[in-house]
Amino acid sequence: MAQQEIKKSWLSRYSFVFWIIIIGFIYYWSITSLSFSGLQASAGSVTKSIIHGLFHPQWNYFYDGSGEDLFTQILQTLAIAFLGIFISSILSLPFAFWAARTDRKHKIHWRSTSGKVVLVFVRAFPEIVLAIMFIKAVGPGSFAGVLALGIHSIGQLGKLFSESIETMDTGANEALQSAGGNKLDVLFLATIPNIIPSLISYTLYQFEIAVRSASILGMVGAGGIGTPLLFAIQTRDWSKVGIILVGIIVMVTLIDFISGTLRKKLS
């Protein structure tokens, strides 16, 4: 018995060595798998042009009333992100209840396990891949971006919502059941009011991510600020690239600040 305790203490004391070896092997494998072909001859001049464009942005592109200016494209990007999250926040609720494990009596819960598998499958497709697929189905434009963000966010919000359901305080549910309430009463009078603050907080957090993603989806033709950014990069119009990047930075910063403030008030 004493030898077993000594062996366990030795393993717990030096287990970090095993993890250091594993992490070191992963780093070694990652570095050796990269193929570095060196810098191109034009790397220096291109870098100088990019930096010059960033510090000398094309301010007259901010708004010119053409509908293709920076201000209009940023509004379109925000609209794509908002509509995508609005769709996913509603559609993800049934998936969340499907994936939530509320019965702890059995080790394997087939209902929640199957729901989690479906949500993992949905999350496995990046937004940009979904955007390319929807562009082929509905054509290029903002609608494809909304569908891509909406479908992808169902997987993420469904996972977060299901975790809120699993960890919520069930006291109100039990009290309502003991008072004779049916399942619908428990759902609408106890469960949903209990998890609404978490649902809103997670939705705001996902909206922050969606705004960043919507800025990129335009590069594949899914609308938003990414489309003029791609054209400006391809034509090496670095001053235009600079003002677009300034607009994206300001937009993302404001959204993060507003969303973070709202989430703090909800917590």
Rank of each mutant, 00 (worst) to 15 (best):
S30I: 04
G38M: 03
I31M: 07
G24F: 01
I22R: 03
I23C: 05
G44K: 13
T32I: 03
I22S: 04
F16E: 15
A43H: 00
I23S: 11
L39C: 08
L34G: 08
F25I: 15
I20T: 07
V17K: 06
Q40H: 10
A41G: 02
W29F: 10
Q40D: 08
Y28D: 01
G44P: 04
S30F: 10
T47Y: 10
I21C: 12
I20Y: 01
I26K: 04
S35W: 01
T32Q: 12
S37G: 14
I31S: 12
I23P: 01
Y27M: 06
V17W: 03
A43C: 01
S45R: 10
I23A: 11
S37R: 13
F25A: 15
G24I: 12
V46F: 00
V17A: 12
T32E: 15
S33P: 01
I22V: 15
S35F: 00
A41W: 09
F25N: 10
S33A: 02
I23L: 13
G24M: 13
Y28P: 06
G24Y: 01
I26V: 11
I26G: 02
I21S: 02
Y27W: 08
G24S: 10
A41P: 00
F18C: 07
W19D: 09
F25E: 14
I26R: 05
Y28K: 14
Y28W: 11
T32P: 04
L34Q: 13
F16M: 00
T47W: 14
V17L: 15
I23Y: 03
V17R: 05
I21K: 05
L34I: 07
S42H: 08
L39D: 11
I20L: 14
S42Y: 00
T32S: 14
G44S: 09
S37L: 08
F25P: 02
I22D: 04
S33L: 02
T32G: 06
S35T: 10
Q40L: 08
V46E: 04
I20G: 08
A41M: 03
A41H: 11
Q40E: 12
I31R: 07
Y28A: 08
G38A: 09
L39F: 15
L39E: 06
S35H: 10
S42W: 00
S30R: 13
F16A: 08
I31Y: 02
G38Q: 04
I22Y: 01
F25S: 15
F36K: 05
S37I: 10
I23K: 03
I21M: 06
W29L: 06
F18Y: 04
F36G: 07
Y27H: 07
V46P: 04
Y27I: 13
